[in-house]
Amino acid sequence: MKEMTAKEVEMNVTEGKTLNIIDVREVDEVAAGKIPGAVNIPLGLLEFRMNELDKSKEYVMVCRSGGRSGRATQILESHGYSVINMTGGMLSYEGQVQ
């Protein structure tokens, strides 16, 4: 499984690089703040909504602490998607949120 630290994600966002971020937390968790541009697909809905994703793109999976995003990474990889897990989750993310 490919991984990226929260700091690396933050630096990429700050530098204006385009990251396809999927936040797999529940809607009420995301309401407290998410990485700008992140799309919320709760983990429980991921298998039903993965058809919304483009297999030609790489996705960064995010959750609260890194556990659910790790599971989401495994699910998507098993279906042929290119995915990176953000380790440490939003607890480790110090960048701006919206």
Rank of each mutant, 00 (worst) to 15 (best):
Y81S: 09
E47S: 13
G44Q: 14
L45N: 11
R68K: 14
M4T: 09
E58T: 07
E77Q: 13
R68F: 07
I35F: 02
M50N: 05
I35Q: 05
L46D: 08
D28Q: 09
M50L: 13
T18E: 15
L53D: 01
S56I: 10
Q74E: 15
N51W: 09
Y59R: 08
H79C: 15
Q96D: 14
R49P: 07
Q74R: 15
P42I: 08
E29C: 03
S92N: 10
K57A: 12
G66I: 13
A38Y: 00
D54H: 07
Q74T: 14
R49H: 13
M86C: 04
E58H: 04
I84E: 06
V9H: 03
Y93W: 06
V24T: 02
G44H: 10
I75M: 13
I84P: 01
E77D: 12
R68P: 04
N12E: 13
H79Y: 15
V24D: 00
Q74G: 14
T14G: 04
N40H: 02
P36M: 09
R25G: 01
K57M: 14
R49V: 11
M61D: 02
K34N: 00
D28E: 14
V13A: 10
G88V: 09
E10P: 04
A31D: 01
A31W: 00
V24E: 04
E29Y: 04
E8L: 08
N12Q: 15
A6K: 08
V83T: 14
G95R: 11
T5S: 14
E3C: 03
R25F: 02
I35N: 00
T87N: 03
L45I: 07
G66P: 10
S82F: 01
V9G: 02
M4I: 12
R71D: 13
L43F: 04
K34S: 00
K34H: 02
V9L: 13
N51I: 12
S78Y: 06
V27W: 00
E8D: 14
V30R: 00
V27E: 07
G67M: 13
M90P: 01
V13G: 07
G37L: 10
V30E: 01
N20D: 14
A6E: 05
I41D: 01
